[in-house]
Each structure stands twice: as C-alpha cells, then as structure tokens.
Design a protein around this nucleic acid. Structure first.
Length: 563
RNA sequence: CGGGGUGUGGCUCAGGUGGUAGAGUGCUUGCUUCGGGAGCAAGAGGCCGCGAGUUCGAGUCUCGCCACUCCGACCA
C-alpha cells in the first residue's frame, strides 16, 4: 500500500478527551474515530489490527475444536424473559420494539441464544460435548463509558459456550479453553496474569480472568510472588490470624462526643484504628444485617453478597440504622442491639481481644469488648477486602502484593443455570433426561487492542508486536524527486509485495522527518529508509522496538524482512 | 445515579466590564528547502452545542435543554 493513497490522518496533538495512552494513541494514529460516547468506528489501519487480533483468536479457537457461527445482534426478548435476565439486566441493556410493538434488545451477551440453539439441535449424549463461538458486536449501555474502546457501549467480543454431559466434561472443556486463551494472549505479546475471579450470583464452580498488567486497569489484582496465587481483589481470600492471647479486661462504656468516624475516634482516644471494630449496617434484599470488620479494613461487598446470597445489597438507610441501634449513625455496635439482627463478623475480628465498638447510644463507645462474653456473632466469615502485605491465603508464607489489571478474557463454569431455565437437556445412555452442563468464555477483542497498546508504546507512538501490526514493513524514501532513491525503494516495495509481505511505501512528497514521525506513531515494526546510500544499493534498517540503525545492502534488508 | 468541568474552523486553544470572531497546528497554491513534524508569502475554512429570554445589539448576561468529559457509586 502506498501511504499517499492510504485513508489515514494522524494527529500531532493529543486529543482533549483522551486520558490514557492507548486511547490517545489510537486517536492520534487514526485507528479509531469516535461517533458518540463509548461508540467508535475502526478506520482502515485500526481495522487491520482488529482483524489480526480476531484471526489469532479464531485460529486458536478452531485449533481447540470450537466451532464458529454467528448470532444476530438484534434479539427477541423471549429467551431473556425466560432466563430472567430481561429484568435483571436493567437499563444496561439496549431495548427496542419492532413495528408490531414486540420487545427486542441488542445482545449484551448471548448465553440464551446459544443455549436455545443447542437445545433445539442436540438430543443425545452422543452429540456432546460441543463448544461454539462467535466474534460479534455486543451492546451494553454502560453507566460510564471510559478510555476509548477499553470500556465502550458497542464493543467486539469473542464469546464461546461449551455444552457437556457432566462436570468432568465441563472441566475438560474449560481447561481446553484456558489453554487456548494462553496461546492467544501469548501470540499478542501481552504480559498477563490469570486470576481467580468472583463467580457472582450466577453460582457455578469456578471462574478465572485474564488480566493484562497495567496501571490504568480498572480491576485490582492480588498476588503472592511466593506461590503464584493470584485473584481479583474482590475475590481474594484473607487468612484468619492466630487468636489473641491477651487477657480479657472489663468492658467499659466511654464518652466519645461527636466521634462518629474511625479517624475522629482515633484522635479522640489517642489510639490506633486496628484497636477498633466498625459495625456497618447493610440492607440485603430488605433484611438489615450488621457487618463487623477491623477499623482499618474495608468490607468486601462482593464477598458479602455471596455470603448472604443476596440479590441486592446496599448500605442501610440512616432511618434503619437509628431504628436498629437506637443511636445516631456512627455509634453502632454488636452489644445490646435494640432490635435483634443478624451479626456477621470478619474472621480477623474473631481473633481480637479487648477492642472498641459503638455502644448503640449516641456519643458512647464500649472498650474492652470481647466475643463470647459481650456478644456472639451469628456468622464468622472472610468478608474484608484483601490488602497489600496480607499473608497469602494459599501458601500461608508469602505476602500479598497488589497491582492493576485490564480484564481481557474471562472463563467461567456456568453449570446448569441456563440449561435449566431454557430446557436444554439431553438423553443419557439410560435414556434419562439431564440438563447440559455449560461453560462460557469471553475475550474483549477491541479492549485487547487497547491493552496491547498500553503495554507496547513509547513517547513516539505505538510499538505493535509483529503478530498484530497492521503492516510489517514501511519503506521510507527520503526524497521523492530523486530517481536513484525512488527506483531502489520501488524495487524493494515490489519484491516485498510479491513475496506477500504487508508493506507500506511512504511515497508522499513530505520531508523525511514527517515520515519518520508518522511511521513511529502508527508503530510499524520494521522500517527501511532509502536515502543517502541508495546510490550504492544500500539502505537503513531500523526496528520500532529498538534504537539500533543498520545500513545494509538492499538484498539484506529483504532477507531481514523474511524473503 | 450523585458531584465537578467543558462545549468557539479538522485538531489544540484564546476571546476583562455585551458592539456580529482570533492564534497555533493541519489543509490549498507558489517560491526556497529537504535525514526526526522546515521558512517565507498568498488563500480556503466558523448557525461561537441547541432553544428561549434580557438588550438597540449576545461567543460574552439569565433560564432551560443537549452533548462530551472527570471523580465517585454501580457493574455477570
């Protein structure tokens, strides 16, 4: 392709509404174009990268035995109503009507469609297992689209679904997908971590996320460098510490006027936050529960939702807090609650002695409170968020570190949630009906592109890994009015084109500096400059990921490009 | 959903106290240049987000709306 004819416009200035490097560079390099918040077009150069990513995924999925098909993006409501997700999705789903007033949506994910397709076409255990996938646009009306294609409302996703006879079959399908995912992300040159993820209200026996390490990632990762355990921070377990050996002291009510927060109490009492236990009241599907964690800890709401099996969880309203405790907000505690409610206590608190809690009386706290003597929790469980420095819950030796990550893939053991809801059954050897056991596996295609750029760029622009670069080589003749230069450049160009190499020739009548800047910005891996030494048949070769420049014979440059 | 910010040529932005718009960059043309975004000169390009209102007169003031964006909350 000749750059003079390429539909591309690069920008020198950083676009005002882009915050992170990948978003800025995708706009500056002319890969994408914003149509509306969270909605982007892919321009020719960007679309080439997009297709490379797609093809790597396609190749590895096919090798893993998955079969590609394509579902409509415009979907009738029936299956979503049957699975319960028509309501559960809420405003995040784009909804519309046809002229007859029937409900439709733009598919936010396709469990229902795949389950129905398999239900209607497979009857026997002999036809299982099967894994199907598609690469297709998804629609989610995100509350807050962000960072260009990183979190957008229309995005491209590869979604796969496996159907097995039993759990053992699911495990096998799951591992096959896990292995395929590793190959996919390896081929794209990504530095990533596989973490345990929350399986959420969907239940199921397991879920893992593929996280690309990046400071701009929206997810937190906890990992142990000793044993390799890694988990999403919302999932990461914490250890129960050894019980305190301290002698129990007598409980004491203390006046703490206006000290509603831990900070205020700490400065008032001149002690440290880890001597406190805070009691937070939640409303879980209408039930008020008390949740206790150490004063310097945060409650992990994901763990709490799972523990309570709640559909909706939110902080209790102030009125509810006052009704339950008989005191103003800020003085809640587990001792002598006015209204008996469930008390859930973190495992760390269960090991403490002589701690400070609210007294359920405005302006008062209790000190030297002890479990068993002063109150008894209904449940003791791991409900706090893990933090940097925690003991590893797996090896119990290493300490946990924290990092940020971009979730580019998610694999999930679904079990029978959808097969039950939609009647996806098969007949086993005995002729008995069983629900199929499902798994689902997603990769964000457009998000992966952005993640690659986050990990592969410098001040001058993108540094595409070879496997997904839009073109492998760019030839830069420094002067377009110099016959010697142009003849040699054109000669290399035609040889490479014939050899099937994806090559650009920057034949624009621009100064060399402009061409170098653009080549760096769009990130072409190999650059061949044809200039001063063209008379001797020599050219300069430079790779985008290195600062070395080598002058070589033109034939050598061809060889280096793989001819 | 709560709180903040911003809407002015393609892009980045400037436009005290009201008087119908500027710069840089990009684009076109010419000349001089030509190895890391050249210089000079001449051009083209703007319902100043939309709608009301105040005013003789609104990019500027008032009200409403919309869009974009940031922080938080939320998120299979």
């Amino acid at each position: 392709m000749r750059v003079s004819g390429l539909f591309l416009s690069t920008q020198r200035e950083v676009p005002a509404d882009a915050e992170i490097p990948s978003h800025q560079l995708m706009l500056r390099a002319g890969l994408i174009r914003k149509e509306a918040s969270g909605i982007y077009s892919f321009m020719p150069l960007g679309f080439r990268v997009y297709r490379k990513v797609e093809n790597i995924i396609r190749e590895e999925m096919d090798k893993a035995g998955a079969q590609e098909l394509i579902m409509p993006a415009l979907l009738p409501a029936e299956a979503y109503k049957a699975s319960g997700r028509w309501d559960r999705f809420g405003p995040e789903m784009f909804r519309l009507h046809d002229r007859g007033g029937r409900d439709f949506c733009l598919g936010p994910t396709h469990e229902e469609s795949f389950t129905e397709a398999v239900r209607d076409n497979i009857r026997s255990y002999k036809q299982l297992p099967v894994t199907l996938y598609q690469i297709q646009h998804k629609y989610r009306d995100e509350k807050r689209p962000r960072f260009g294609v990183m979190r957008s409302r229309e995005f491209v996703m590869k979604d796969a679904y496996s159907f097995d006879c039993d759990e053992a079959g699911l495990d096998k399908s799951y591992i096959t997908m896990y292995d395929a995912y590793r190959k996919i992300f390896d081929r794209m040159g990504l530095d990533y971590t596989v973490v345990d993820a929350d399986s959420g209200a969907m239940g199921g026996s397991g879920s893992q996320e593929f996280m690309v390490k990046s400071d701009v990632g929206e997810d937190g990762i906890c990992y142990c460098s000793k044993c390799g355990y890694a988990a999403n921070e919302e999932k990461a377990a914490t250890c129960a510490p050894a019980p305190s050996e301290e002698e129990m002291k007598d409980i004491e009510k203390i006046l703490t006027p206006d000290a509603k927060t831990i900070e205020e109490l700490v400065s008032f009492l001149g002690t440290t936050p880890d001597n406190f236990v805070k009691t937070i009241l939640y409303n879980a599907d209408g039930e008020i529960v008390a949740v206790m964690v150490r004063g310097d800890r945060d409650i992990n709401e994901t763990k709490l939702v799972n523990l309570l099996a709640a559909n909706e969880l939110e902080l209790a309203a102030f009125d509810d807090v006052e009704a339950v405790t008989g005191a103003k907000v800020g003085f809640a505690g587990p001792v002598d609650l006015k209204k008996k409610i469930r008390v859930i206590c973190d495992i760390e608190v269960a090991a403490m002695r002589n701690f400070i809690v609210g007294a359920n009386e405005t302006d008062y706290h209790f000190k030297n409170v002890n479990i068993g003597r002063d109150f008894t929790p209904d449940t003791v469980a791991d409900i706090r968020s893990a933090v940097e420095g925690d003991l590893c819950p797996k090896c119990k030796e290493g300490t946990m570190s924290m990092a940020r990550g971009i979730e580019v893939g998610h694999i999930f053991k679904l079990g029978t949630k959808y097969s039950k809801a939609l009647g996806c059954i098969y007949l086993d050897k005995e002729g008995k009906e069983n629900n199929m056991i499902m798994g689902c596996y997603g990769i964000g295609v457009s998000r992966t592109m952005a993640a690659v750029i986050e990990q592969h760029h410098d001040d001058d622009g993108i540094i595409w890994p070879e496997g997904i670069a839009p073109y492998q080589v760019i030839i830069i003749p420094t002067k377009t009015n110099d016959e010697t230069i142009m003849n040699l450049a054109e000669d290399i160009y035609s040889k490479m084109t014939e050899a099937g190499i994806e090559v650009l020739i920057d034949d624009r009548n621009e100064r060399p500096g402009v061409k170098f800047k653009d080549a760096d910005l769009i990130g072409i891996p190999m650059r061949i400059t044809v200039g001063r030494a063209a008379g001797e048949g020599r050219v300069e070769v430079k790779f985008r990921n290195s600062s070395d420049v080598n002058e070589v014979e033109a034939s050598e440059a061809l060889r280096m490009a793989g001819i």
